[in-house]
Simulated scan of single mutants.
Amino acid sequence: MKEVYILLTDTGTTLNRTIKLVTHAPYNHASIALDKELNEVFSFGRKQPINPLYGGFVQEDFVKGTFSWYPETTCAIYKLEVNERIYNKMLRLIAAFKKNRKWYYYNFIGLFGVPINHPIEVPSSYFCSQFVAEILRRSGIKLFNKPSSLVSPNDFRSANKLDLVYEGKIYDYPELKLSYNPKKYNSFPFRKYVAQQIKAAFDGNSDEREYYFRDGFVKPKKILFERKIRDASSIIKK
């Protein structure tokens, strides 16, 4: 048997708090994880931490992604046991999403259909819990007696095939603490960050960075600074 995990989260953002006023649910984002260590976690959500309106298919990144901007995020993690055939089918489905990720969009309209129990399906578009439910459905796992477009994150909490394995702050999850320490830097190395950003802007290598703004560092400064670096590099390259 194989194990997959359903991750429900609440970042505590203004958008999340607004949603909770309507849903009255503790978690308003759902992801599916292919491993216990949460190295491969997929969902539909923000493509950029600072922009809640720019969404689509994403692979969650606990070091550089949205969660790293909200280290107080709370979560519930559920385990689901599946056979190898179902697990391999999940791998193929997610691989297809990864390959065509630029063609998928966030189903904002579909969110309005959930509270009125009216499914709104938009081609190549999903919201987070719709995506997770659809991956399970297409793999042969039936958790709900309703369309995936009516499944909310809160529905997973009452699914009888899921076993709760952890609930608490996401960065206190034992398996994640082994690989990521959000308090690595007691004080932010701003000069090293500046040198790194300038180097990345001019040589085009943005993947081998060591320092990131996170854990309460001033985000508007980061946004403004990176915009200035991009503008300066584009002018010089011309």
Score class of each variant (00 low, 15 high):
residue 39 N to S: 10
residue 222 K to H: 14
residue 82 V to R: 04
residue 197 Q to H: 02
residue 109 I to E: 03
residue 95 A to I: 01
residue 151 V to Q: 04
residue 146 K to Q: 09
residue 149 S to V: 02
residue 119 P to Q: 05
residue 180 Y to P: 01
residue 195 A to S: 09
residue 204 G to A: 09
residue 67 F to T: 08
residue 58 V to L: 00
residue 37 E to N: 12
residue 24 H to M: 11
residue 102 K to N: 08
residue 163 D to W: 01
residue 174 P to W: 09
residue 210 E to R: 06
residue 167 E to I: 13
residue 7 L to P: 10
residue 192 K to S: 13
residue 40 E to K: 15
residue 170 I to C: 00
residue 106 Y to Q: 08
residue 40 E to Y: 14
residue 103 W to N: 14
residue 224 L to E: 13
residue 15 L to I: 14
residue 236 I to T: 02
residue 104 Y to C: 07
residue 161 K to H: 10
residue 50 I to D: 12
residue 146 K to N: 10
residue 226 E to V: 08
residue 136 L to F: 06
residue 196 Q to E: 15
residue 73 T to H: 05
residue 92 R to I: 13
residue 39 N to Q: 14
residue 228 K to E: 14
residue 9 T to I: 12
residue 60 E to H: 03
residue 146 K to C: 11
residue 210 E to F: 11
residue 128 C to V: 10
residue 124 S to W: 02
residue 143 L to N: 09
residue 20 K to P: 15
residue 64 K to W: 11
residue 138 R to I: 03
residue 37 E to Q: 15
residue 47 K to C: 00
residue 230 R to E: 14
residue 76 A to C: 13
residue 233 S to P: 00
residue 139 S to D: 04
residue 164 L to G: 01
residue 93 L to T: 02
residue 210 E to N: 08
residue 88 N to V: 09
residue 179 S to V: 11
residue 43 S to G: 06
residue 203 D to H: 10
residue 115 P to K: 12
residue 63 V to T: 12
residue 223 I to N: 03
residue 84 E to H: 07
residue 150 L to G: 07
residue 106 Y to A: 07
residue 19 I to M: 14
residue 171 Y to I: 10
residue 106 Y to S: 04
residue 46 R to D: 00
residue 41 V to M: 00
residue 125 S to W: 02
residue 181 N to V: 04
residue 121 E to K: 15
residue 223 I to A: 04
residue 88 N to L: 06
residue 93 L to I: 13
residue 62 F to A: 09
residue 21 L to E: 11
residue 6 I to K: 02
residue 174 P to R: 04
residue 21 L to F: 10
residue 24 H to P: 03
residue 82 V to N: 01
residue 134 E to G: 03
residue 152 S to K: 13
residue 28 N to G: 14
residue 88 N to C: 08
residue 229 I to P: 05
residue 147 P to I: 01
residue 95 A to W: 04
residue 128 C to N: 06
residue 202 F to V: 09
residue 120 I to R: 12
